[in-house]
Design a protein around this nucleic acid. Sequence first.
DNA 1: GGAAACGATACGCACCTGCGTATGATTTGT
DNA 2: ACAAATCATACGCAGGTGCGTATCGTTTCC
Lengths: 138, 138
Amino acid sequence: MNEDDDLGALCAGAGRNLAEAERPVLERHGLSMWQYVVLTALAAGSAPSQLVLAQQIRYDKTRLIALLDALEAEGLVVREPDPADRRARVVHLTREGATRHAAVRSAIREVEDRKLAGLPPEVRQVLRSALAHLANSV
Amino acid sequence: MNEDDDLGALCAGAGRNLAEAERPVLERHGLSMWQYVVLTALAAGSAPSQLVLAQQIRYDKTRLIALLDALEAEGLVVREPDPADRRARVVHLTREGATRHAAVRSAIREVEDRKLAGLPPEVRQVLRSALAHLANSV
DNA sequence: GGAAACGATACGCACCTGCGTATGATTTGT
DNA sequence: ACAAATCATACGCAGGTGCGTATCGTTTCC
C-alpha cells in the first residue's frame, strides 16, 4: 500500500490490518467485535435507550437486541427500564463489564502499539488527531 | 469521535466518512466502488491474471468475473489471453478506461481535500505516511 | 504421453447487514 | 380521553461477502 493512494484506500487498509490483528485478542477474551464496541460505548457513559446506543455505534437497532441479550447473559451489561419513560431501557455496564472492557482495551492497545512500532510519539499523536478530524469533518 | 478512541475505531470512522462523501462522486461517474478499485489497480499496471488482480484488491475471485464483464462491456478494460499461458487472461485498461479513471480520481481527490480542510500540508503528509505504515506493518 | 496442478467461470451455501413491517406497552399532544 | 408517536422486540427480505465445489481448457512434471 502506497503513500499516494487514495485516502479512503489507506484508511481501509490500515483498518483492515488492525482488525485482523485484533481479532485473536477479542477471541481470547470471548468477545465479538460488536460486543467490544458496545462495551466501549457504555464505558464512556450509560446509554439512555437501546435506540440511542444503536445510533451511537452505528449498528442495526433490531440486531442490537440479541447482542445485548448475550452481553446481559454474561453479566457484562444490564437493561433497566427508564423510570422517567418506561418504554425505554437504560443500558449500563456492570462492574464485571467495566473490568472486562478495561482488560480487552489494554490488550488491544498493546496490539496497536506493536503496529505503530517505528513511528515516533509526535507522529502517533498527529495521526490520531488527523483521523479524528477526518472522522468528524462534514 | 474522540482522539483517544481505539485506532481501529478512528480508521473505521474516517474511512466511513470518506466513503460516504465519495459515493455520490462515483455514482455521478457511473462506477461502483469496486469498479473504481479495479480501475485504480490497473492504472498502476496491468494485471497478469484475474486471480492476481483479485488478490491485489482483496476481492472475491469468483465475483471479480462479473465485475470485469461490466467494465469490459463499457470498454474500460480488456481481457486478453496471456500468450505465454493461455489459461490466464491479462487485464489492462483501455485508453478510455485510463481517461475515466483519471477523471474519477481527480474528483475523489477534491472530496478528500475538502475533508482535509483545516489540516496543514505537513500534517496531511504525516497522516498519509503513517496510514501507509499501519496498512503495511506486520 | 498421462497425471496432477492451475486459471477462468458458474453455482450454491452460510453469514452479515440494512431496511421495512408488525405488535404490544407507554408516552405525548390536543 | 383518545389519537398519534415512540420504544423494544420479532420477523422476513434483499443484497453483499467469503468460501467451497464442479467443469473445462491449458500447462507442468514425471
